[in-house]
Simulated assay, not measured.
Amino acid sequence: MSEIPKGTAEGRVSHWQLQHIVGQLREARDDWRTRNRRVSGEHGGRELPSRAAMGEILEALAGALFPMRLGPVDLREESEDFYVGHTLDVALNALLAQTRLELRYVAHQQGQSIEGIDQRALELIQDLALALPGIRRLLDTDVLAAYQGDPAARSVDEVLLCYPGILAIIHHRLAHHLYRAGLPLLARISAEIAHSATGIDIHPGAQIGPSFFIDHGTGVVIGETAIIGERVRIYQAVTLGAKRFPADENGNLHKGECRHPIVEDDVVIYAGATILGRITIGKGSTIGGNVWLTRSVPAGSNLTQANLLHNDDGTQK
């Protein structure tokens, strides 16, 4: 191990007892790795994908999808194709490296062979590359829905540049593809980058149809198994969550069960509504602000706090 310097670059003596602290941190890491039966990465290198690298990749992919809006400030239309091609080449190669890391990590964790992983990673990123035109067209419907759904929006360009819901859905469309491709860690990192930037928490497993609009957006939560239809609009602080978390006899949560709502086409959900469990919100329904909902409602429903019926014990009928 390299010796920890006792002074700074300017020659000043360090006050931080770095030799002692670094040694204790090494012991803590070694203890954790031993308890969790972790092995070092290949050649002692990084074992897991990088959040920082994924941030750069996502920014580059967004620029390639919308070059004259989210690309470089000095980009001109005559060089658009060159920029898109170059940016995609760099971003997809970087994503390929992150994909290899996730696939190798999973293989090591499960005691599987890493033979064929590099080819598998290449095929997955090739599939994503071919899907990008379709993702762009899908995002166009989201941008248009935001413009048409908000009277304050002056142009689709303003929506694309300024609206947090659009940034969140750009990340989600890309993350959802990664999730379905069998790259849940890269997908989750992508979603959490958008969550940090916007306050909108969309699990990459959620299925969301075209023309989706999140207005304002802060505090929105959409769970892993939620299914959202076409032309759905939701406002800030809406939760599409799970009602309960079933566990086995040892207290371990069951994974992969369908536990989040289904929201059919043309539904509007206003600010602060909490919708829990595997229930269905029927087509064309409107859910008012701050409504707490744990039962399915038929198509065309109009629910507010005032018109919800309750049993004697306070539960919903």
Score class of each variant (00 low, 15 high):
Asn252Phe: 14
Pro246Met: 07
Arg259Gly: 09
Gly256Gln: 10
His203Asp: 00
Ala206Tyr: 07
Gly219Trp: 03
Ala206Asp: 03
Thr239Asp: 05
Ala237Trp: 01
Cys258Leu: 11
Gly219His: 02
His203Cys: 03
Pro184Cys: 11
His203Glu: 00
Arg233Glu: 08
Gly251Cys: 12
Val238Ser: 06
Gly223Glu: 03
Phe245Lys: 10
Ser196Thr: 14
Leu183Ala: 13
Asp215Gln: 11
Glu224Arg: 09
Ser190Tyr: 06
Gly209Arg: 01
Asn252His: 14
Glu230Pro: 00
Thr198Ser: 04
Glu249Pro: 06
Glu257Thr: 15
Gly223Cys: 10
Arg244Asp: 13
Glu230Trp: 02
Ala197Ile: 06
His254Phe: 15
Pro210Trp: 03
Ala191Leu: 12
Arg188Ala: 06
Ser211Cys: 10
His216Phe: 06
His216Ser: 04
Gly256His: 12
Pro261Gln: 04
Ala206Met: 08
Gly209Glu: 02
Phe213Trp: 00
Gly219Cys: 03
Gly223Pro: 11
Ser190Leu: 06
Thr218His: 09
Ile234His: 05
Pro210Asp: 03
His195Pro: 07
Lys255Trp: 04
Glu224Val: 11
Ile189Asp: 03
Arg233Met: 15
Ala247Phe: 04
Lys255Met: 13
Cys258Glu: 09
Gly229Tyr: 10
Ala226Trp: 02
Pro204Ser: 08
Gly209Lys: 04
Ser196Gln: 13
Leu183Val: 13
Asp201Met: 09
Gly217Asn: 08
His216Trp: 01
